[in-house]
Design a protein around this nucleic acid. Structure first.
Length: 430
RNA sequence: GUGGGUAUAGCUCAGGUGGUAGAGCACUGGAUUGUGGCUCCAGUUGCCGCGGGUUCGAGUCCCGUUACUCACCCCA
């Protein structure tokens, strides 16, 4: 095969799409329960939106975006959802129409990273954003939504990690303190962290390298630098989590890659999964200054996004798809005509029908019906036409009888909805 | 961008020390002129990733290359 999908971009075949539908439906349900409404934004945005919002020096912006020029415009295929949602919020002056806005989104994102397990160049994210609510209860409720959703879809075990970055000033002060702390230890850090030292010293804290972990042991905590307002928010957040009974881990080393976060920061990791290094199922946090920096009003905001591929590798396989209610096996040209009409009528009763139009012998048709896991097989040949009947074979049991062709659809529709006579033979459903 | 692993039938994979391809599953036909699943029999499917080298001879050894994959970086 010389034609392949683009690297890092995957086909999702129907067998798997079922799982995606299920996941998406569960997400929508939970988001709606908490008052969120779906927003849909374009896949393409002006490049500047992302470079300004995510931070010029983040890896995503520096080397992972699919950017190009077209008709004199610098465009980028969205690498994440928050920037677009924020842009739409500002563009439509939503703040002037309602004090609090709760939006969710769902769709593909694109980053030109080297693919690995649970990480692809086209990947799907679902996320929520609350705009206009600065309170810590809002942050805790978002985690409540998340935890309920994860349990609902069957994530076996996960941990919630939380941290606070304070406001912009706090972050700057903390950065200085960290630099001060790491400077004498600098030559003991890993090569990667030597680089981080220059660019983003906060990231040294969550390095996986044992040398860095050793060096970071006595590092100052950002939580000690929070000002009164930040601290009140942080405490309110933890209090609300306690009220909700949500277990969490305070992780002062939790730093996220995007520059726009303030105060609350959280991450949910899968426990005991085979996701390898990509065990982070979702991440989010508060971005109280982003809307304003986008040229919008002073509106606080918080959001999270989760990777659907990662969720899918962690949750159990759903039961197999049920077969059609009726499989129609016509034998001969006259039967084929009748079968065509019968199939349509059955469907009008809401019965899922598969008609075998191959014109082959009965045996392969029955085999096909069985492989599909059909409930009933309708056999229609010359004999049946002469007698004005159809033969109905129960594929779950073995029973077979004839019913009048006239009014057959209604009778079959009723029969399909009945419980199977002998469930122990329900095999071949794969 | 860096490092490791892998590449043989539609799928999952065997193929010591080089002798010109195999199994299971799937699919098709038959045993059963119009009756599925189970069983039995038979059959179809391969540029052995690609290019080059060594050799009388390469799926097997060497070099290169591409793809996939895992890990790092980073992130969902």
């Amino acid at each position: 095969m010389d034609l392949r999908a683009v690297r890092g971009m995957n086909d999702i075949l129907p067998e798997q799409v079922r799982r995606w539908h299920q996941l998406e439906a569960d997400f929508r349900l939970h988001a709606e329960l908490y008052g969120y409404a779906e927003v849909r934004t374009p896949l393409l945005e002006h490049t500047s939106l992302f470079s300004r919002q995510m931070g010029e020096t983040t890896d995503v912006v520096e080397k992972e975006m699919y950017s190009f020029e077209r008709h004199g415009e610098q465009l980028t295929v969205r690498p994440e959802g928050t920037a677009s949602a924020a842009r739409a919020y500002v563009e439509h002056s939503v703040h002037a129409k309602e004090p609090i806005t709760r939006w969710y989104y769902l769709g593909p994102m694109f980053r030109g990273e080297r693919p690995a397990k649970g990480r692809y160049r086209q990947f799907y994210q679902a996320g929520c954003e609350v705009l206009g609510d600065a309170g810590p209860v809002c942050d805790a409720e978002m985690l409540d939504l998340i935890a309920g959703f994860l349990r609902r879809i069957g994530v076996p075990d996960f941990t919630i990690h939380v941290n606070s970055l304070g406001s912009a000033g706090t972050r700057g002060r903390y950065r200085d303190k960290l630099l001060e702390y790491f400077t004498p230890l600098r030559d003991r850090l890993s090569e990667d962290s030597q680089r981080r030292f220059e660019r983003n010293p906060l990231r040294i804290l969550d390095s996986k390298d044992p040398r860095d972990q050793e060096a970071a042991k006595g590092a100052p905590s950002i939580l000690d630098l929070l000002d009164d307002d930040d601290l009140a928010h942080w405490k309110g957040f933890l209090h609300a989590l306690d009220v909700l009974g949500l277990p969490y881990v305070v992780d002062p080393g939790l730093v996220r890659g995007l520059d726009y976060y303030t105060r609350t920061l959280f991450e949910v990791k899968a426990v005991g999964s085979d996701l390898g290094a990509q065990s982070t199922l979702l991440g989010g946090g508060r971005y109280d200054t982003m809307i304003e920096s986008l040229g919008g009003p002073k509106v606080p905001a918080i959001g999270f996004a989760m990777g659907l591929e990662r969720l899918l590798t962690v949750i159990p396989e759903p039961p197999p798809r049920r077969g059609p209610g009726c499989f129609i096996a016509p034998i001969g040209a006259a039967a084929a005509d009748r079968a065509l009409l019968l199939a349509r009528e059955l469907r009008s009763f809401g019965v899922r029908v598969e008609l075998d139009g191959r014109g082959v012998k009965l045996k392969p048709m029955l085999r096909r019906a069985d492989a599909l896991g059909a409930r009933l097989c309708i056999i229609l040949g010359d004999g049946e036409i002469e007698r004005g009947v159809v033969t109905v074979k129960d594929l779950v049991g073995h029973a077979q009888d004839e019913i009048p062709f006239e009014g057959a659809a209604r009778v079959l529709a009723d029969r399909v909805s009945e419980p199977s006579p002998d469930i122990s033979h329900a095999r071949g459903l794969r």
